[in-house]
Simulated scan of single mutants.
Amino acid sequence: MNMLDIRNLTIEMDTSNGPVKILDKVNLQVGEGEIHTLVGESGSGKSLLAKAILGFINPRWRVTADRLWWNNRDLLNMDAALRRQITGRDMAMIFQNPNSYLDPNSTVGEQLREAIPKGDLRGTFIRKMVDKRTRVVRLLHRVGVKDHDQVIDSYPFELSVGVAQKVSIAMAIAHRPKLLIADEPTTAMEPSTRQQIYRLLTRLSITQGMSMLMITQDVASVMPDSDNVTLLYCGQLMEAGNKQAVFDQPQHPYTEAMLRMSLRDTDAVEPKTHLPTLPGAIPTLQHLPIGCRLGPRCPNAQKDCVMVPKVTRLKQQSYHCHHPLAPNKRRKSAS
Rank of each mutant, 00 (worst) to 15 (best):
R127D: 08
K118W: 01
R135E: 12
H141W: 07
L112V: 04
R122D: 01
Y101C: 02
V108I: 15
V137S: 12
T107H: 06
V145P: 10
G119K: 13
N105I: 10
P98M: 00
D131T: 07
G119M: 05
D103R: 07
I152N: 10
R133H: 10
E114Q: 09
D153K: 11
E114G: 00
H148Q: 11
D153Q: 13
L102K: 03
K146W: 13
P104H: 02
N99Y: 05
F95K: 00
R142Y: 07
S106L: 15
R133L: 07
L121D: 07
G109K: 02
K128N: 03
H141E: 15
K132P: 04
V108T: 07
Q96K: 03
R138Y: 06
D131S: 12
P117W: 02
L140I: 12
R133A: 10
L140W: 12
Q150N: 13
D131R: 08
G144K: 10
S106I: 03
I116R: 08
D153W: 10
R127C: 01
L140F: 11
G109S: 00
T107V: 04
K128V: 05
I152Y: 11
R135F: 11
V143Y: 11
S100N: 13
D120F: 14
L121Q: 05
V136W: 09
R138P: 02
A115G: 03
D103P: 02
R113F: 01
P98I: 02
A115Y: 06
N97A: 06
N105S: 14
R122Y: 10
M129Q: 15
N99V: 01
S100M: 05
N97V: 00
R133Q: 10
G109I: 02
T107L: 00
R113W: 03
N97I: 01
V137A: 13
K132V: 07
D131Q: 07
L102F: 05
P117G: 03
T107D: 06
G144S: 07
I152C: 06
T134S: 13
K132S: 11
T124L: 03
V108E: 06
T107P: 00
Q150G: 13
D120S: 11
F125W: 15
N99M: 11
I152V: 14
Q96V: 01
T134G: 08
L139D: 14
D153F: 08
T124A: 03
M129V: 12
L140A: 12
D131C: 01
L140Y: 14
D120Y: 14
D120P: 03
A115D: 04
E114L: 05
V108K: 05
Q111R: 03
R135G: 09
L139G: 13
D149M: 09
K118A: 08
P98T: 00
D147K: 14
L102Y: 02
H148N: 12
L112A: 02
K118L: 10
I152A: 09
R138D: 13
L121F: 05
Y101A: 08
P98G: 01
D103K: 03
Q111I: 05
R113S: 12
V108G: 05
L112G: 04
V136N: 08
F95L: 03
D103L: 07
D103N: 15
N99I: 04
L140H: 13
V130H: 10
V136D: 06
D103F: 06
T134K: 14
V137R: 15
K132Q: 15
R133T: 09
L140V: 11
S100T: 14
P104W: 02
